[in-house]
Design a protein around this nucleic acid. Structure first.
Lengths: 249, 249
DNA sequence: ACGATAGTTCCGTATTGTGGAACAGAGTAC
DNA sequence: GTACTCTGTTCCACAATACGGAACTATCGT
């Protein structure tokens, strides 16, 4: 496809990102499936370039200062929020319900923006908070994006209940995730809290990578209410596509 | 030296960073001194990986979402750096020594900004790096903020030496931390490296939570030199208070 | 229609990156 | 003290990947 060693380099950087922990070379070899000699050579080059830094322990690595410099003006989330906001506002105007913008954060979903409807009965502000993936609609989208091994790792942790509708049975969660994989949409009914339902779709890059999630929430007595779920899902997907389009052109 | 095409790849990414503008291939060829066919191939791979994105005009490129994902979520830090920078610059102008802005990062302190004095003899760039708390002045501020249990947990790890003055004896470290608790200031003498001394104070939110640390460092032969430590500490504390005030948390 | 310029693709070549083997160092068990 | 295991690093013969100039395509100005 492209330049092999450049693809490998970013696979290594991916393995190092998403955590501030130091990762040992052997663990990186497992995560990237590269021979240790190959990995050692790539890491040596990246260390010389300050993209990667040696950790405190021998043979351990982490992202270096130059990786951060690549982020440029504004964090990823600020750029995402700026790109998504206009479309999220239109969506709120259409649906007249609150919605949040979530990003993956380990086994959690973290909300980086929230757009409010004009309704007097609202969902409180969740920006900055992280919820376990199985407890929100946005989180189900993230879980559906995991491969089998990653999903099994998620299931190895206890599935705590957060609301009466939280899927705490691994098989129930697996079924819910399968449905998300099939339909591209996630629905929750009092999974996070009493009286709150949710719907979500993923926002992807032009090459299909999951970047963020649109999550609509509302009180159970009116959301989704008698709305046509197919139409609602299609509207969310259209908004997500529009955000994808805006980001990569 | 390292892997040629990896070095070239980061030269390309450097040429694209620092701006939201789209840059044409010909201009990138000039900036990187690479042949256009080589450049085109590297850019094609980076575009496939979402590290780079095609611009609106043919043949123009800009950093893509994945470059930003490498930087990780850092919006708190960027807000902090923006808020602190003017006051840190004034402080550097007053003291004529380099200083860093550190944040807690597990049992480490991570430097998120560095402001340079005009001195020809300087301390190297530590932005993005994490040091064990007991090895820097900023870290002693963090340790002083821990409760007894947390501090005992820190002591359960080996206290490695990083410089001739690193407190590696648990009792010596405990005494140093007690002094920080009493005075609100931390002083180190060659704790991190040969020939480097440090002084630090914490930046707190309006409710008293420790957010970050101002850490001045300088070569031992001139810092703190014959400065009055009481006055120096008071100046650092005043700067920290000013930053707290500006944040209006 | 023609020329200039920019960006893309092609393809023969050789230089570069590969990865298994060998090595060095550290930690552990006896 | 010795032997063994494990981890990370270095070496080096070799294969194949990346190279870059040439050729090509598209666009624009005259």
């Amino acid at each position: 496809m492209g330049i092999q060693v450049v693809e490998r380099t970013f696979a290594v950087l991916d393995a190092l990102s998403g955590t501030d922990d130091e990762i040992r070379l052997g663990e990186l070899a497992v995560r990237t499936t590269l021979p240790k000699s190959t990995l050692s050579r790539i890491l040596a080059t990246l260390t010389d370039l300050d993209v990667v830094a040696r950790g405190a322990a021998d043979g351990s690595y982490r992202l270096g200062p130059r990786a951060r410099l690549l982020a440029g003006p504004g964090s990823f989330e600020e750029v995402l929020v700026r790109a998504a906001r206009p479309e999220l506002r239109r969506l709120v105007a259409d649906l007249d319900e609150d919605l949040g913008l979530g990003v993956p954060d380990g086994h959690h979903v973290r909300y980086v923006d929230q757009v409010r409807s004009h309704r007097p009965v609202r969902i409180r502000d969740y920006v900055g908070e992280r919820m376990p993936a199985h407890s929100t609609a946005a989180g189900l989208i993230l879980l559906a994006d995991l491969d089998e091994e990653e999903f099994a790792a998620y299931l190895s942790h206890p599935l705590d209940a957060y609301g009466p509708g939280t899927p705490i049975d691994p098989q129930a969660l697996g079924a819910a995730v399968d449905e998300v994989r099939n339909t591209g949409r996630a629905w929750t009914f009092e999974a996070w809290a009493d009286g709150i339902n949710g719907a979500a779709v993923g926002i992807r890059s032009a090459t299909g990578q999951l970047l963020a999630v649109i999550n609509v929430f509302g009180p159970s007595y009116r959301f989704p209410g008698d709305r046509d779920r197919g139409q609602l899902g299609a509207r969310l997907a259209a908004a997500a596509d529009e955000i994808t389009h805006r980001q990569t052109i």
